[in-house]
Amino acid sequence: MEVRLRRVYEPVSSDDGKRILVDRVWPRGLSKDKARLDEWEKDVAPSTELRKWYGHDVDRFDEFTRRYEDELDEPERAAALDRMRESAGQGPVTLLTATKDIDHSQAAVLAARLRGASGGG
């Protein structure tokens, strides 16, 4: 299963495969045409409460990952994750986020989950 991570602001690459935005909020200053998304799976994004608590504080990433993993077991998020897993089974998938630090983002946690691991990375 080939799952990649990229910032949504980066240029589209020919090897992106299916491009899926995994943020709950639309990326600031980006038009839908320029984003060139195949899907926007906002249902898989962390809750607003968790996102605000985390605030992209790297020192909180391990706890964020633990809490987000719990959220991913909730029915709505689990269904969105299943859709993404199905897409990834059909070819390369690139998870997109507006976050600057991709390695410490929900996209990294999702990629690990899709690849069959637990936690970020």
Rank of each mutant, 00 (worst) to 15 (best):
M1E: 09
V3H: 06
V12E: 11
D16T: 06
G17R: 04
G17C: 08
R19E: 07
L21N: 00
L21D: 04
D23Q: 13
R24P: 15
R24L: 12
W26H: 01
W26I: 03
W26N: 04
G29F: 11
K32L: 05
D33S: 14
D33T: 13
D38S: 11
V44K: 04
A45E: 04
P46R: 07
P46C: 11
S47E: 03
S47N: 01
E49T: 13
L50F: 06
K52G: 01
K52T: 14
K52Q: 13
W53Y: 13
H56K: 14
T65S: 14
E69Y: 05
D70A: 13
E71L: 02
L72M: 08
L72N: 00
L72D: 05
L72Q: 01
D73W: 09
E74K: 11
R77G: 07
A80K: 07
L81T: 01
L81S: 05
L81G: 01
D82T: 14
G89T: 05
G89Q: 12
Q90A: 14
L95F: 09
L95D: 04
L96Q: 02
A98M: 01
K100V: 10
Q106P: 12
Q106A: 15
A107E: 06
A107F: 06
A107Y: 00
A108V: 02
A111L: 00
A112Q: 14
R113S: 13
G116F: 05
G119S: 03
G121K: 08
